[in-house]
C-alpha cells in the first residue's frame, strides 16, 4: 500500500512540478508570478479533451500531449503579445504584470465557463488496460506514463538551462537583464523563449490534469495553487527547489488524503506554505534567489 501511495504521490507531484517550474521560469526572468498560467492550463485541458474526442479511433496519447503542448505555446505567446509586451516596452512597474496575469487567468476561466459550463467532462479513457500488476501490486498505467513524461521534460529543461548556450543566456538575463543587453544578448528573444517553455509546460500539465481530475474551467487555477505553493516552498525562481518541493507536496498530499481526507489535506498544504513563509521565506534553495535580489 505504502509503495502504491508513494508512486501515486510522486506522479501527482510530477504534475505539480511541471506547473511549479512553469511558474518559476517566468518569475526568474520577468520577476512576477504569472497567474495566467492556471488559465493556460485549463484552456489546454479543454483543447486536449476535444482533440482526443474529435477522432475515431482516438489519436495516440502522445499525439494529444504534443498537440496540447503546441497549443499551450501558442496561448502563452498570445498572452505575452496581447498583455505583457506593452508593459515591458513601457518599463511599467511589476504590479501591472501581476494585474495583467490575474486578468488573463480570470478571463480564460470565464470564457471556458461561458462555453462549456462548470460541469466536469470526463476524459475518454486513453489506454486499453487502465492498470497493470507487478506481483501483488496494482499500478495505474496513467500514473506511470505521467511520471515518465514529466521526468523526461523536466530533465530536458534542466539540462537545457544548465548546459546549453541559450540556457546560459537565460541565466544571464535572469541575473541582470541590463548587463546582458550590453553583452549583445537579445533579452526580448529570451523572454519569448521563456513563454514558449511556460506554454509547453502548461500544455502538458493541462492534459495530465484533465486525465486525472476531469476537464472543467477551474481545473487549471485550482491546481496551479499547488504548483504555486511548491514554487514558494522551493524558493521563487529556483527550478530545482520547485521540482523538489512539488514532489514532496504530491507525496504529502497523497498520504494525507488517504489517511485524513482530501479537503483536510489541502488545508494542511496551505499550512505548510504559511509555515515556510514564516520560517524560511527565501524557500529551500534560498541562497540562489538571494543572490539575484
Amino acid at each position: 500500500m505504502a509503495l502504491q501511495l508513494t508512486i501515486n504521490g510522486i506522479s501527482i507531484g510530477a504534475i505539480y512540478a511541471l506547473i511549479a517550474v512553469g511558474f518559476a521560469v517566468v518569475f526568474n526572468i520577468m520577476r512576477f508570478s504569472n497567474f495566467a498560467h492556471g488559465g493556460m492550463i485549463s484552456a489546454c485541458a479543454f483543447i486536449s479533451f476535444f482533440f482526443q474526442r474529435a477522432f475515431d479511433p482516438p489519436p495516440p496519447f502522445f499525439v494529444t500531449v504534443l498537440f496540447s503542448a503546441v497549443c499551450g505555446m501558442g496561448i502563452a505567446l498570445l498572452i505575452d503579445t496581447l498583455g505583457y509586451r506593452r508593459i515591458r516596452l513601457k518599463n511599467s512597474p511589476k504590479i501591472y504584470y501581476f494585474l495583467m496575469s490575474l486578468t488573463f487567468a480570470i478571463l480564460i476561466e470565464q470564457i471556458l465557463t461561458v462555453f462549456f459550463g462548470t460541469d466536469i467532462y470526463g476524459f475518454p479513457s486513453v489506454f486499453k488496460s487502465q492498470t497493470f500488476e507487478i506481483g501483488s501490486m496494482i499500478f495505474k498505467t496513467m500514473n506511470i506514463v505521467i511520471l515518465a513524461v514529466s521526468v523526461v521534460i523536466l530533465v530536458a529543461l534542466v539540462w537545457m538551462i544548465n548546459k546549453t548556450k541559450i540556457g546560459l543566456a537565460i541565466r544571464a538575463v535572469a541575473i541582470n537583464a541590463d548587463t546582458s543587453r550590453l553583452m549583445g544578448i537579445n533579452s526580448s528573444v529570451i523572454v519569448t523563449v521563456i513563454f514558449i517553455i511556460a506554454g509547453v509546460l502548461a500544455g502538458v500539465s493541462g492534459v495530465f490534469l484533465g486525465v486525472q481530475y476531469g476537464v472543467f474551467p477551474s481545473v487549471g487555477p485550482s491546481m496551479m495553487l499547488k504548483g504555486f505553493i511548491a514554487s514558494i516552498i522551493g524558493g521563487l525562481g529556483s527550478l530545482s527547489g520547485a521540482i523538489f518541493a512539488a514532489l514532496a507536496l504530491g507525496l504529502i498530499e497523497m498520504f494525507l488524503t488517504f489517511f485524513i481526507g482530501a479537503t483536510e489535506a489541502t488545508v494542511i498544504l496551505f499550512g505548510i506554505m504559511l509555515a515556510f513563509l514564516f520560517i524560511r521565506p527565501q524557500g529551500i534553495m534560498g541562497i540562489i534567489v538571494e543572490d539575484k535580489a
Binding site: 546560459l168 543566456a169 541565466r171 541575473i175 541582470n176 537579445n186
Partner: peptide, 22 residues
C-alpha cells in the same frame, strides 16, 4: 553575473557568436 561562474561569465559575451538555435 553573480551566480554564474567565471567561465560562464565570459561565455555570456559569446552568446550571439554560435550559430545554432534552440
Amino acid at each position: 553575473f553573480v551566480g554564474l561562474n567565471v567561465l560562464d561569465n565570459v561565455k555570456v559575451a559569446l552568446d550571439h557568436d554560435g550559430k545554432y538555435s534552440l
